[in-house]
């Protein structure tokens, strides 16, 4: 059999795994066959069915997935001029929310401290430290504010036979945060991924990165019966076949 005969079926994902690998190998060295596959795929794209715009929540989850990899210091609202690393822009929507929370929290701090007996200098120093702390980790502040929300649902995900655990807070509007956790960091090519059990179905709630700190995600809290974290390849998967690392189920 000639490999070329398989190219049409290959372009339509209609080969068994062994034949697909065979073609993959061949394509790495054959320009004309690569070209043929490209042509088939252009034609296939024209056969695609009518577009169906996805609901807004899909874009929300993509944004959450993008924000995951941003180190917390990139979220600081007062330092927009530093480095041009990937993913900075994407976190602006989060930084704005976090900054708003920080301002509210600082207002409270000022009131409490002004009632204290002490020198003005002490108060200023303390406030500066508070400000520095907020600016250093606004995401944590946003998550803390969520944790204190009386309407928040808080889930403690645990493991049966390890010490790993993870605390998750979920607000009625679907804003969620992975909070404290004791998960073992994974190699770069792996990630933790959060799943929700909703109406007896498992849906992905976000990719958490290989060493999750405070991580935002979006999940409609309606009907959530459980939360599970698995270990997956970096980037995450649409459907998991991995065992849970930690899990929580509604009593």
């Amino acid at each position: 059999m000639k490999v070329e005969e398989l190219l049409g079926a290959y372009a339509l994902d209609a080969l068994d795994e062994d034949e697909r690998l065979l073609v993959d190998r061949h394509l790495s060295t054959c320009d004309s066959c690569r070209e043929e596959v490209r042509d088939h795929r252009e034609v296939a794209a024209l056969l695609a069915p009518p577009p169906i715009p996805p609901p807004d929540r899909v874009w929300g989850r993509i944004l959450a997935g993008i924000a995951v990899a941003a180190p917390a210091d990139e979220l600081a609202p007062v330092v927009p001029l530093r480095r041009r690393e990937r993913r900075f822009e994407s976190t602006r929507w989060l930084a704005g929310a976090a900054a708003a929370v920080a301002v509210v929290a600082l207002g409270v701090t000022v009131v409490v401290q002004s009632g204290r007996i002490g020198s003005l200098d002490d108060q200023v120093t303390a406030q500066q430290q508070e400000i520095a702390a907020f600016q250093a980790d606004p995401l944590r502040q946003a998550a803390t504010a969520a944790l204190e929300d009386p309407n928040a649902r808080i889930a403690d995900l645990t493991a049966e036979d390890t010490e790993a655990r993870m605390q998750i807070v979920l607000l009625p509007d679907g804003t969620g945060y992975v909070f404290e956790n004791t998960m073992t960091p994974l190699p770069d090519e792996a990630t933790y991924q959060l799943w929700a059990l909703v109406d007896d179905r498992i849906i992905s709630a976000g990719v958490l990165g290989n060493d999750p700190g405070v991580v935002p995600f979006h999940l409609d809290p309606a009907g959530v019966q459980g939360l599970v974290v698995t270990e997956e390849v970096a980037g995450g998967v649409a459907q998991s076949e991995s065992d849970p690392v930690v899990a929580w189920f509604e009593a």
Partner: peptide, 26 residues
Amino acid sequence: GAVHGLARRILRDETLAEEITQEVFL
């Protein structure tokens, strides 16, 4: 829309189609 429409056509399942759409753009 094209991505989501194709995924839904093949999978016949809205939840899975949304997962795929999310994955493709991520």
